[in-house]
Design a protein around this nucleic acid. Structure first.
Lengths: 217, 217
DNA sequence: TAGATTGTTAATCGATTAACAATC
DNA sequence: TAGATTGTTAATCGATTAACAATC
């Protein structure tokens, strides 16, 4: 028995946080009503696309009026699961791990950091913002005992898959991976990669695109 | 007079760093030959797509043989502009700025960090890995005098556009933006955004997708 | 030579855009 | 009511996949 909920495409999903961010900006400016046309103008999309995207999840607008900003912001928050609380751990307490731990956007908004892990004995026992750094050997048990839902990987590429396996064994539901390696996880675990060098190399590509394409002729 | 160099689509461009990364992995394993079929298997793409992608830039393979790993790796490095040197500055010397400064992948590979900038008097004058933190008021002059090509923005969203404007005024060619705001730059300046919370919210969406789509029915 | 695999053209698929009736 | 703007269907566009002749 098939549910009518046809999968939403990744292209749409990745635009949702963007809508959420722009709506937050409108809220801050005390704008309480917006049409798809006006939103398309400030976001650089088409009005048609915005309406199509939103209608994957429901009819949030009103003919002749547009969308209520606060309401739409709230609906998208729910779609993104931002009305829920998540407990998390960061594995790797180096520069990147510490930066994520301190990342203010991450601290608020219901993402509770329950623990950090590192292999370096000098770091173990220290605290970042009141969060203790544990020995990396204890990941699996800690994740299980504390019902950790999100595991954040900030270790070198060599160790990334091993850490992912341990997080999964402990029972995390999702992994936010900052290591430059596409760690594999079982189907029932969600994975989101942040490949910083890929982003940087995209920029350098664009800086050189003209020369590259001319040379090809 | 139009050049035959038809623009390469962004979808293709964003796969290039991924090819580069996987080829690097093969190199490390001393594998010196690969077919599009085998590469498609380890990367999770189709062989057809790989051949299409590469042929946007040239015929790097050989019929009946496949691709020489070292050669293809090198060609893609050139396409991505990784054979060149770039001088850069980081604006914002908080946790994120410092993490980027210390990011090892960034330090090697020809990305020279020439200076950092912050508004906080306590940070100004300090050094991160031998790189001095300057007063944020001096950005434009510093960028111009030191021929900085890449400006990295790691400041709060409120200041991001102002910083971008100053970097552009100083003459940067590209901006790597970590602020949660789509800063606008002139057409001749390239921009690459890293929106960390959008990535995180994509993960939380996926954690809740089933519930969301069922509720809709 | 026979087998393998590319480069490239053609077919398919999916995502974006356009259009418009429904309706606030 | 008249005007505005949605939700949704149809048309278009672009990206991915399939197929195969060329060739190493």
């Amino acid at each position: 028995m098939e549910r009518s909920s046809h999968k939403v495409s990744m292209a749409v999903i990745r635009r949702l946080p963007k809508y959420y961010r722009y709506l937050e900006g409108l809220l801050k400016k005390d704008i309480n009503r917006i049409s798809s046309k006006e939103l398309s103008r400030i976001m650089g999309l088409t009005a048609s696309q915005i309406r199509q995207d939103l209608n994957c999840f429901g009819g949030f607008g009103q003919q002749g009026y547009g969308y209520n900003v606060a309401e739409l912001h709230n609906e998208i928050a729910k779609i993104l699961g931002l009305n829920k609380h998540y407990s998390s751990v960061i594995v790797g307490a180096g520069n990147l791990g510490q930066a994520i731990a301190n990342y203010s956007n991450f601290q608020r908004q219901g993402f509770e950091l329950k623990g950090m892990f590192d292999i370096n004995p000098k770091l173990i026992g220290l605290r970042i913002r009141d969060v203790e750094i544990h020995d990396i050997d204890n990941i699996e048990g800690f994740v299980r005992e504390n019902d950790i839902e999100i595991g954040i990987i900030a270790v070198p590429l060599e160790n990334a898959q091993d850490i992912a396996d341990k997080l999964v064994a402990g029972g995390v539901k999702g992994i936010w991976n900052f290591a430059p390696f596409d760690v594999k996880v079982p189907e029932n675990v969600e994975i989101e990669h942040v490949h910083l060098s890929e982003s940087l190399y995209t920029l350098t590509y664009l800086l050189n695109e003209k020369d590259i394409l001319e040379k090809k002729d």
